[in-house]
Amino acid sequence: MHKLTVPIPDEAIRALRAGDQVSLTGIMVTARDAAHKFLVETYVRVDQPTQELELYQELKSILNGGAIYHCGPVVSKNPDGTWRFVAAGPTTSIREEVYEPEVIAHFNVKAVIGKGGMGPNTLKANQEHTAVYLSAVGGAATLIADAVKEVVTVYKKDEFGVPEAFWVIRVEDFPAVVTMDAHGRSIHDEVAAASQSRFDELVK
């Protein structure tokens, strides 16, 4: 079990191999479909960002050496107005494949956490920018919510809705498995190839 603390140094990322179990501690931010589209269209695919500049500074600081979590949580508001994560498992990551390599490169993200794995562009971005993709267990929502010790803040909640907002959270011992490392290995590709050859035998 590798213990990772955010911000994650490059040498800790390089030490990880596909198949390793990890536990993360520190600050991470949830981002899914609307958030990725927003990040790339507002900040990355422009000559110079001109909109939402205050949020840009906040996100740059959170994401530098940081972790993005593909998650649309169930949240509950405490009587004192703060938020609490009730259920927070990962959502399917591949939908962000068109955005993630640019997000990793632009913001210096070190760990992308989700489920189901990502494609060749993210695998390449992992190698080029020393990052990893971590699989959390899909549906393990209550257990993961238990690892979320604090909701630090939330951005874009009213505009994107609860599941799609940027939730900045502090986690302790968040459990995950390295399924795409920084050395070009993807468990997703390996399992896909092995299951394809077994399939070919079964339908012959």
Binding site: G72, A87, V137, G138, G139, A140, A141, T142, V177
Partner: peptide
């Protein structure tokens, strides 16, 4: 990793029942 995933799933199922909290956030 497979056994680890199933252990996580089963711990989650137990905790969700105990806390009356959603098994998965995508309800």
């Amino acid at each position: 990793a497979a056994a680890g995933a199933l252990e996580t799933i089963l711990r989650n199922v137990g905790l969700a029942r105990q806390l009356s909290s959603p098994v998965c956030q995508d309800t």
